[in-house]
Design a binder for these strands. Structure first.
Lengths: 233, 233
DNA sequence: CGTTATGTTGACCTCCTTCAAAGGCTGTGG
DNA sequence: CCACAGCCTTTGAAGGAGGTCAACATAACG
């Protein structure tokens, strides 16, 4: 994870002002001047696939905004298994618990190579108190986390495994993604609360039924309508 | 649902200042003067068991703090089933999505007779912007929702039904509760993502094994240690 | 080229659902 | 007071869904 923004040679600081995802993330309400004022302590990190952003139970000095890639938040269970409780995509924020607590509640791991901004909690707390639009954005992000958690309960943890898998594929919006966009069978299991083997069997069955196809580029093409049918059945 | 606080004859307004749960809820940071200033539009509602506080998809003008009782937040699924995604206890807040959205995301129903305060969203939005302690309390509440949602994923939607039920009973803290504290078998099913029959079978089996006992008062007494063992296995 | 992680498949068995029926409890009306 | 309806709970039997254990394939990587 290489830091960029605080490196003087890096042109990222000016880039930050025109960041594609800036409008979707926390600092949407800030002027360029305001932005520059608080940019100093913010690092832009490149997170390779499978590397750990932070660990459950660690002291939590920073939160992270996702610029690109895919981050999974997982929880280690008492019996040694683990469960993925959220997937973070560009525009999402990780580690918000840092604003009201001391430690991270999950372990954050890059499912795909990701590009994130690391923001010290103090910066966000200060901005939250001084800028009402940042504050509003923060509330919205928080609600977003709740909504996604609800989705994991109602869509990915309810009903037969086949329907859950269909909903997962729909959630991932599998069409047009790069090959590595798809999580491993093991991750699918951790997402849906089923075993790796069952995940594999269902995916194989989907392929046989023509619901999914691996393009010659390695990409996965889904029959959205067919999956939606399974998801509701 | 009878309104009290805005009824001039009611002594609830002064009572509000000494509300037992006030310290746990949103207005913990307010002085008595500040509190009186915003008390006007707040209604204290008595919510009989099984009555609906608000419905999923409805316009959301209010949020609610729970003073006593137990509220379930349920979601209607596309296939006609329903899933309970959260349980609200005294000190919890319902309908926070009203602060960043227009409609309720769940249907809120009293599992036990409840006592709640209905607060117009505008009041909370104003307080959130003017009083930093209220603001902080709000963030904490939001994080609370996320944490509880995570708990529903990791504890109540993961593993065999028996372990989930054990975790549910532990979560409910069954000892010392009044008889009606226990949800119906159907609700247990909706909480755990299993059928009513399975919930009944597991509870019956727990009783046979001596893990739970119905006291002569009708209360449920649990073998916490034994349940914890099941929950982790 | 072996080594290791990941995906696939089979056999078997357990767990859970489904469908069905019966028992208990409460409230209502004759 | 009893009969009856309605609701929740319990229990049974049967079948299917998913877990477990194991073998094997495949691909990536040193």
């Amino acid at each position: 994870m290489k830091a960029n923004c605080t490196n003087p040679e890096w042109i990222g600081r000016s880039k930050c002002a025109v960041c594609d995802v800036r409008n979707f993330v926390l600092f949407a309400g800030l002027s360029v001047d305001e932005l520059n004022a608080i940019l100093q302590p913010i690092d832009n990190l490149h997170v390779p696939q499978h590397s750990v952003l932070y660990e459950q139970g660690e002291p939590a000095p920073n939160l992270f905004t996702v610029r690109s890639g895919l981050i999974k938040l997982k929880v280690d269970l008492s019996n040694g298994c683990q469960r993925i409780v959220r997937l973070l995509r560009p525009g999402d924020v990780a580690g918000m618990e840092t604003l009201v607590g001391e430690r991270y509640h999950h372990t954050a791991i890059a499912l795909q190579t990701a590009d994130v901004c690391r923001i010290p909690r103090d910066v966000v707390i200060r901005l939250d108190q001084t800028n009402s639009r940042v504050h509003q954005a923060l509330l919205r992000r928080w609600q977003n986390s709740v909504d996604q958690a609800d989705h994991f309960i109602t869509a990915l943890s309810t009903g037969p495994a086949e329907a859950r898998m269909a909903r997962l594929l729909i959630t991932l919006g599998c069409t047009g993604d790069q090959p590595e966009a798809m999580p491993t069978r093991e991750d699918m299991g951790a997402l849906l609360g089923i075993t790796t083997e069952t995940a594999s069997r269902i995916m194989a069955e989907f392929r046989r039924r023509g619901l999914i196809q691996t393009d010659r580029g390695g990409e996965l093409v889904c029959d959205h309508a067919g999956l939606a049918l399974l998801a509701n059945g």
